[in-house]
Design a protein around this nucleic acid. Structure first.
Length: 737
DNA sequence: GGGCGATAACTAT
DNA sequence: TTCCAATAGTTATCGCCC
């Protein structure tokens, strides 16, 4: 088989207007009949030469290669093979057909250019001008006047300006959009109390019940089969109510399932609706000529795959079903069939937190390779994510670092934790470890990034963790910090939480020790003698008998169990107990003590990270060891205090974290850096926590605060539109000064 | 060798 | 002058284990 030459592949790229993945997507309402060639030319000129453009080009080239391979494979199938596959698909069609449900009436309602419409409503001077909501970095939505120029959502503002120099860009006001959205939802709930919001401006409704109960209000009962008349009237009324209430228009699609309703809502935009009868033949007719890209779920890449096989309309999916079965995975070809048959969900199921698979946060910033900046950012992200998780009462076991290089290459690195957690310190330590490893192994030094993200998956509710006897550290502490009995004292959340982070760190160490990870005791542990408690599991630690019964005592003295020194402390107030904790923690966080303990490896892997995976950082590093007998290079043997810059030995590697110690081999250096990193992370966190106690401020850092304020705009409400929200709020400001 | 967990990449909105 | 996001679900692949 001949190898396809790059030059040939280039032919599949639109030479005049750049890579297809950068071209204007004209499937959006209001984008029909534009001079796409001219627009794409402007887009190309505006971005040509940029790293972003280069990245997209590379991506497109890679895709083209894949498409060529696929086309060759498609050409290689015999007639018999295709026929056999077609028969198998026909069997599948029968099974799918059996499930077809035409008994429901589903409506998809989509507010017209929602954010832009709200802004135009509130500022009449914007009404006749091309305008968009967003920033020069990214546009969230545009009005129809702007769409005429090719300006659309998910386009950077500066390109919008190139396409339309008179474009007015209005910064978004999410709280306003949320309020309007709430008004719209009140209308929805009248027709279907169990409606399914997809984002601030979009929702699915099942109006089957409503139609049944209220048909007499809309149509004459003697009219026979009046489903269309009835549904149209109801949806018309709904849109009218929305307009009266908000002065904004909405478009709607009415069909037997969500997939069809979604397609239909797009057909008569803006301020229109489309009805597709619940009739199999009419549905098949409708779907067969529908461009594949109109179907929700078919994006740029899949469209290109299908186009390469001359599939541009949904009807082609049916015609080429045999080929599709041979070329695509089961999930894919089954999906293609359901599209071609016009099938979809005919009932709405409310999404709950229980359905969540992962939770994440990320931020884009001006590219930097400064390690401290990146570490700081990652700590802030962990803090922010932890708060989100706290709010949702979930913990996670798989921690993922996401980063994007300044060349727009996206990478993820994951690690499974030993316990499900949402402790920001544990997450931050894990993320730092992953990040540092990437910094060290990057081919292009130094590693320069423009995005950092943290994701937690393998989620469960905190309560479930308790059920599994895997109490999280947070829970553990909150139990330990409760007064043994007292009705006279209440605790503010912040009072209790102010000590969490420190305690969790201490507790984390206890946990590590109880896991037998610790080889020898350190001065720190000698003080409180945690090392004697190797057999103490977390559960045992928690369920220690609590002898004192203060509630029976006549005085107002309360008894707390200090989880640092494990003493029962009699105090008159929480404040007093805090003082005790401070003292205890101070002992533990004493730099001299800590340093010596670190030197003794006692903080080794105090992140709580399980290192049993083949792909774990530690394993990767040790796999590098394979070349060198590990007993030859012992950390302490190999350590050097010679300043490497002045040393004549060119094999000395300076630790980039402490910049104080150097090593003669990478393994030793890596080990040291892990410890050094943990040491500095813990020290930093302890310092931060003590500072916060003094000032009794909430424990968020400035950066985390800024980020938090930009977050939580839509939460679960906003799936689609939050995509752009932080485009207006990147962290550029942290670097601009 | 099939099931399953872990990880990274892909894809969508 | 410069300027291209955030979040989440799905899928592919690999390696381990019984």
């Amino acid at each position: 088989m001949a190898v396809t030459k790059k030059s040939e592949l280039k032919g599949t790229m639109d030479a005049s207007s750049g890579p297809k993945n950068l071209s204007l997507n004209t499937h959006k309402a209001g984008m029909e009949g534009l001079d796409t060639e001219k627009i794409n030319e402007i887009i190309k000129r505006a971005s040509e030469g940029s790293r972003f453009y280069q990245h997209k080009q590379k991506h497109q080239q890679h895709l083209n290669e894949k498409l060529e391979v696929m086309k060759k494979e498609a050409a290689s199938f015999t007639k018999e093979q295709t026929e056999k596959a077609t028969k198998q698909m026909d069997q599948l069609i029968q099974e799918l057909e059996a499930e077809r449900d035409l008994s429901h009436t589903i409506v998809h309602v989509d507010m017209d250019m929602f954010y832009a419409a709200v802004e135009m409503r509130d500022d009449p001077s914007l009404r006749d001008k091309p305008m968009a909501v967003g920033s020069t970095g990214m546009l969230s939505t545009s009005n129809y006047a702007a769409r005429k120029f090719g300006v659309r959502a998910a386009m950077p503002g500066f390109i919008g300006k190139k396409l339309c120099p008179e474009l007015t860009i209005v910064p978004p006001n999410f709280s306003k959009y949320r309020a309007v959205s709430q008004e719209v939802r009140e209308v929805f709930s009248h027709y279907d109390p169990g409606f399914s919001p997809m984002s601030l401006d979009e929702a699915y409704l099942d109006i089957t019940d409503y139609l049944q109960k209220n048909s007499s209000l809309y149509v004459d009962e003697d009219d026979g089969d009046n489903h269309e008349q009835l549904a149209q009237a109801v949806v018309n009324e709904m849109r009218h109510k929305i307009e009266v209430k908000t002065q904004l228009t909405a478009s709607a699609g009415i069909a037997a399932n969500t997939r069809l309703a979604k397609v239909c809502s797009d057909l008569n935009k803006p301020n229109g609706q489309y009805y597709l009868p619940p009739d199999r033949d009419r549905i098949l007719e409708f779907i067969s000529s529908l461009p594949i890209r109109k179907v929700s779920g078919i994006g740029n890449v899949m469209e290109q795959h299908l186009q390469a096989l001359d599939i541009t309309q949904c009807g082609h999916l049916m015609e080429k079903r045999g080929l599709l079965k041979l070329l695509f995975s089961e999930t894919n070809y089954e999906n293609f069939l359901t599209i071609a048959l016009g099938l979809g969900h005919s009932t709405l199921s409310a999404w709950t937190e229980r359905d969540r698979k992962s939770i994440s946060t990320e931020t884009t910033f001006k590219g930097t390779s400064d390690r401290q900046t990146l570490f700081k950012l990652s700590v802030d992200l962990c803090q922010e994510l932890a708060e989100d998780m706290q709010e949702k009462d979930i913990v996670g076991k798989v921690l993922t670092l996401k980063f994007k290089t300044i060349d727009f290459q996206i990478r993820t690195r994951a690690q499974t934790l030993s316990e499900a957690t949402r402790c920001p310190e544990v997450m931050a330590a894990g993320i730092k470890r992953l990040l540092l490893h990437e910094m060290n192994v990057a081919t292009e030094q130094p590693l320069s990034l423009r995005l950092l993200g943290v994701r937690m998956s393998s989620l469960m509710y905190s309560s479930e963790v308790g059920q599994r006897r895997q109490a999280t550290l947070t829970q553990m502490f909150s139990q330990a910090a409760q007064p043994k009995a007292s009705s006279s004292t209440t605790f503010s959340q912040s009072e209790q939480e102010s000590h969490h982070s420190q305690k969790e760190i201490i507790m984390e160490n206890v946990m590590i020790k109880s896991d037998n990870t610790l080889e020898r005791s350190s001065p720190v542990t000698a003080k409180t003698d945690f090392s004697q408690k190797k057999d103490i599991s977390i559960e045992n630690f928690l369920s220690k008998p609590k002898p004192s019964k203060p509630a029976e005592e006549p005085t107002r003295t309360e008894v707390y169990e200090c989880s640092v020194c494990e003493e029962l402390v009699h105090v008159e107030s929480l404040e007093e107990f805090n003082k005790h904790l401070d003292t205890c923690l101070e002992i533990h966080s004493s730099p001299s003590l800590r340093k010596s303990s670190i030197d003794n490896n006692s903080f080794k892997d105090d992140t709580g990270i399980q290192k049993n995976s083949e792909q774990s950082v530690e394993s990767e590093e040790s796999s590098e060891d394979n070349e060198i007998p590990s007993d030859v290079f012992h950390l302490n043997n190999c350590e050097s205090n010679i300043d490497p810059t002045t040393s004549s030995l060119n094999q000395n590697f300076l630790c980039p974290v402490c910049e104080q110690r150097s090593f003669c081999d990478m393994t030793a250096l890596n080990k040291h850096m892990d410890e050094c990193l943990n040491k500095s992370a813990i020290s930093e966190l302890l310092q931060e926590s003590s500072h916060q106690q003094e000032t009794t401020r909430p424990k968020k850092t400035e950066m985390a605060k800024n980020q938090s304020s930009r977050k939580r705009k839509g939460n679960a409400e906003s799936h689609i539109h939050k995509k752009t929200k932080s485009g207006f709020n990147t962290l550029d400001r942290y670097f601009s000064s």
